[in-house]
């Protein structure tokens, strides 16, 4: 079998051990990298062969879970989605995602981001609570209505946009690109009626207008979500709302099933499911 060509790459990894270090320190690791190895593969190899104390977070290894975001050669990106030899042929710097606290080595504390995400109520809110609890039929939504927010549903909550955002760097009150994008995503969903409940967070003085369109969130997002677009469209909607210029979009109505179609039986949630 043909031997794969390897390239020696020096990884400068910013390490931080909360028990011994006051601040992070950069340590070099030399690794023979083969074509096809992602940065995450390289970190695994370093951990297996050189330093078992290296800490990093990962799960799916395929750009789906959003666990492995880190600062690679000065840019935030997913380690499992980045081919090492596409990024460098000699040295690579790896550090924890900025604009979050570091728990250890390459592991950022994403809890503040998830807290804000929870506060934006990222779920469908409607006035017909009874229909939501015991649905009698589907809510009507046209393909066009779906397209208006579908792009923003691809977010995997990786935090890359939060690390790329210069406003996040200085303003800890700013909700950040990911939660603001989710406000727009749910406000625009024709089935949702909860825009009023999300308005405080979006329209406050350190809210969506803290964005001055550096655009780096959209350049960095690994899923093509384009938070900068969602944020500008959210500003537009808030201005229209303030000036009473917006067209009122009535919340989607239920769409009775055709008489010859039967609903699938309700799938019972397992007893341990949260909230059941």
């Amino acid at each position: 079998m043909e031997q794969l060509k390897t390239v020696p790459i020096t990884f400068y990894i910013r390490r931080f051990d909360p028990e011994t270090d006051e601040e992070p320190q950069v340590r070099p690791y030399l690794l023979q990298v083969e074509k096809g190895m992602t940065v995450l593969d390289c970190l695994h190899r370093i951990k297996e062969e050189q330093d078992q104390s290296l800490a990093f977070r990962f799960s799916c290894r395929m750009g789906v879970c959003g666990s492995c975001a880190m600062l690679i050669n000065g840019r935030p990106m997913l380690a499992c989605n980045s081919q090492t030899l596409d990024l460098t042929d000699s040295v690579l710097t790896v550090a924890a995602l900025p604009n979050f606290n570091i728990i250890r080595d390459l592991v950022p504390d994403l809890v503040p981001m998830f807290d804000v995400h929870q506060r934006v109520k990222p779920y469908i809110i409607r006035k017909d609570a009874l229909e939501m609890e015991t649905p009698s039929s589907e809510y009507f939504q046209s393909p066009h209505q779906l397209e208006e927010f579908l792009q923003f549903t691809y977010c995997i909550k990786c935090g890359v946009c939060m690390a790329a955002c210069p406003t996040m760097a200085t303003d800890r009150q700013y909700p950040g690109p990911m939660p603001l994008t989710q406000i727009y995503r749910y406000n625009t969903d024709s089935r949702d009626d909860g825009g009023g409940e999300r308005k405080d967070l979006a329209a406050k003085s350190r809210g969506v207008f803290g964005c001055h369109y550096a655009g780096e969130c959209s350049n960095a997002c690994p899923k093509g979500v384009d938070p900068a677009r969602a944020i500008q469209l959210l500003k537009r909607d808030l201005v229209r709302d303030y000036l009473n210029l917006g067209k009122a979009h009535p919340c989607a109505k239920t769409h009775p099933l055709p008489s010859d179609v039967e609903r699938k039986p309700r799938i019972e949630a397992p007893p341990f499911t949260a909230g059941v």
Binding site: N99, P166, A169, N219
Partner: peptide, 25 residues
């Protein structure tokens, strides 16, 4: 203990390999 890794003013001025709109910002 956690290390505060917010970039602060460096996050505005530090630039790095960013897009042109970031420099305009």
């Amino acid at each position: 203990k956690q290390f505060d890794n917010h970039l602060g003013i460096i996050g505005w001025l530090g630039g790095g390999r960013w897009g042109i709109e970031r420099y305009l910002y």
